[in-house]
Amino acid sequence: MPQVGPSQVTCVSSPCRHGFPQAFGFHPTKGPKLIDEWEGQSGVREMTDWLRNDVNGDKRKGYERANEMQKQIRSELVAEDYDKLVSRMGEYNAAKFVESGIAGIPSSQTYNVKCIHAHVADHLCRSSQSNNTNTSTEGNIIGEHALNILQNQRGVSTLGNDVCWQQCSLRHEQLPSDWNYVPKKNRQGLRSTRQRRKERREED
Rank of each mutant, 00 (worst) to 15 (best):
81 D>N: 09
7 S>E: 15
14 S>V: 11
194 R>D: 11
150 L>N: 08
82 Y>M: 11
64 E>C: 05
203 E>S: 14
77 L>V: 12
42 S>M: 12
116 I>K: 09
2 P>H: 12
204 D>P: 00
39 E>R: 05
5 G>D: 11
89 M>Y: 13
167 Q>L: 12
125 C>Q: 10
15 P>C: 11
201 R>Y: 03
44 V>D: 08
107 S>R: 06
117 H>M: 12
105 I>K: 03
73 I>T: 04
172 H>C: 12
143 G>Y: 02
190 L>Q: 09
202 E>R: 15
36 D>M: 05
29 T>M: 09
63 Y>V: 14
140 N>F: 03
98 V>D: 05
108 S>V: 08
103 A>G: 01
117 H>G: 12
104 G>W: 02
112 N>F: 15
194 R>I: 12
119 H>F: 11
119 H>P: 14
9 V>D: 09
200 R>Y: 07
38 W>I: 02
197 R>E: 09
198 K>N: 07
59 K>C: 07
51 L>Y: 02
87 S>R: 03
117 H>R: 12
65 R>G: 00
193 T>D: 13
99 E>T: 10
77 L>P: 00
35 I>L: 14
191 R>H: 03
195 Q>A: 15
40 G>S: 10
169 S>T: 03
19 G>W: 04
191 R>M: 12
54 D>A: 09
188 Q>Y: 01
201 R>Q: 14
113 V>N: 04
131 N>H: 10
167 Q>R: 13
70 Q>A: 11
47 M>Y: 01
22 Q>T: 08
146 A>H: 02
198 K>V: 06
30 K>D: 13
77 L>H: 01
94 A>Q: 10
186 N>M: 09
27 H>E: 07
48 T>Y: 04
13 S>L: 12
191 R>N: 07
145 H>T: 04
57 G>R: 06
170 L>P: 00
62 G>V: 04
102 I>C: 12
114 K>W: 03
126 R>N: 09
89 M>E: 05
9 V>Y: 06
203 E>C: 13
166 Q>A: 13
189 G>I: 06
173 E>F: 06
43 G>P: 01
175 L>I: 11
120 V>D: 05
200 R>W: 06
21 P>R: 07
2 P>M: 10
129 Q>R: 06
84 K>S: 00
15 P>Y: 04
103 A>C: 12
131 N>Q: 08
36 D>Y: 08
185 K>Y: 09
23 A>Q: 05
204 D>R: 15
194 R>L: 15
168 C>H: 03
66 A>N: 00
57 G>F: 10
81 D>H: 02
128 S>F: 03
191 R>P: 01
189 G>M: 04
68 E>A: 13
40 G>W: 02
99 E>W: 05
39 E>L: 08
91 E>A: 15
79 A>I: 02
50 W>H: 07
91 E>L: 14
109 Q>L: 14
66 A>R: 02
157 S>M: 10
66 A>P: 00
159 L>P: 07
97 F>E: 04
92 Y>K: 15
81 D>A: 11
121 A>F: 13
47 M>Q: 01
186 N>S: 11
176 P>E: 07
113 V>C: 02
137 T>R: 10
117 H>D: 14
4 V>L: 15
157 S>R: 11
124 L>I: 08
186 N>H: 06
94 A>P: 00
11 C>P: 04
70 Q>S: 13
116 I>Y: 05
